[in-house]
């Protein structure tokens, strides 16, 4: 195996991310652990979106809704654990299982309807569902409505780990991100992945050679929804807070921008995209107050001149998983 620029970059990035907590505590800047944990969690959502957007051609403009589903499951369970003393709801395994089931059901419902449409209609209807869930969250008065809900404690996984520890949460997010990369990598090269990618390239031909593409696209949508739900679960734990704003449509837009910025339909693009996006979002405001004035054009330049996003700057690829 020869080491390409891309694989060297990937190895360095993954190594670098693994070393963030010790370095942050060494330079006594705990803030970086927080920032990079957020980065890892958002990259999970971006990897999930890329699976259907980049490989499946489904531009979901309501994907932040799944961040909300995962976040609210964590928030609501911990709320009842604290308020009503429901012991079982404080159990991290139960919370995670509930997150997976809830986001799978929501994705199944939304996907089953949205995937009957194509192109712009798909974008609009996923946006509509995203906004619906946003307003559902706003309407949840007992869980804070518009103001959201603070988490009094974080999820504990007895016998395994406790997310109340900042470093633990960081490495759990890191491991989850790696697992999602691994899942994506296997998935896109499997039979299932070939069908998904074929349906993006040429749905008509897929049907002509004998594939009913709808069930495959729907399952991909559900897998992506569950992954994003898990990201939401981690995000709620990381910020100790859930509110409707985490499922606002602009958050869905951020996810799409991250995927495009990093390189649609590439294995590591979403990770690169998230790091670049969140770093810029963090650094630019400290340079100038009108940072968005520079951020916007930068994104446009990437889209115009680096068609394959950041990933394409690392050299040509023969296969998306190179």
């Amino acid at each position: 195996m020869t080491l390409s620029v891309r694989s060297v970059t990937v190895i360095l990035v993954l190594l670098g991310l693994a070393l963030v907590p010790p370095i942050a505590s060494w330079v006594d800047q705990g803030y970086y652990t927080v920032l990079f944990a957020r980065m890892l969690i958002m990259s999970i959502a971006a990897i999930a979106l890329n699976l259907i957007l980049g490989f499946g051609g489904m531009v979901s403009f309501g994907h932040a809704a799944f961040l909300g589903v995962g976040g609210y499951v964590a928030g609501i369970f911990i709320f009842h654990y604290f308020e009503d003393g429901a012991e079982w709801m404080g159990n991290g395994y139960v919370q995670l299982a509930a997150t997976i089931v809830a986001s799978a059901l929501v994705a199944l419902f939304i996907g089953a309807i949205c995937l009957r449409t194509r192109g712009v209609y798909f974008i609009m209807i996923t946006l509509a569902f995203g906004q619906m869930l946003f307003f559902v969250a706003v309407g949840l008065e007992i869980y804070g409505g518009d103001d959201g809900l603070s988490l009094y404690t974080r999820s504990e996984f007895p016998g395994l780990f406790d997310l109340n520890d900042r470093t633990t949460l960081y490495y759990v997010s890191y491991g989850t991100m790696l697992a999602c990369l691994l899942v994506s990598w296997r998935l896109i090269n499997s039979r299932f992945g070939m069908v998904l990618r074929g349906a993006r390239l040429n749905d008509r031909r897929m049907k002509a050679i004998g594939f009913p593409t709808y069930p495959y696209r729907l399952v991909a949508f559900v897998i992506s929804g569950v992954m994003t739900g898990i990201a939401g679960f981690l995000l709620a734990n990381q910020t100790d807070f859930v509110s409707p704003s985490m499922m606002h449509w602009t958050k869905s837009g951020d996810l799409i921008i991250i995927v495009v910025l990093g390189g649609m339909g590439t294995l590591f693009g979403p990770l690169f995209g998230t790091i670049a996006y969140l770093l810029l979002e963090d650094i630019l405001p400290s340079i100038t107050e009108s940072w968005q004035l520079f951020f916007g054009p930068m994104l446009i330049l990437v889209v115009l001149f680096a068609r394959g996003g950041i990933d394409s700057l690392l050299g040509p690829r023969s296969r998306p998983d190179d």
Partner: peptide, 30 residues
């Protein structure tokens, strides 16, 4: 009307795959 981004072999394999059982196989490299 072919899969322009796929290789010749991938194009034809995909057509074979459509008639070789279901494709809800998520792990093995097709």
């Amino acid at each position: 009307n072919i899969f322009l981004d796929f290789t010749v072999l991938e194009n034809v394999s995909l057509a074979v795959q459509a008639h070789a059982g279901h494709s809800f196989r998520f792990f093995a490299d097709a």
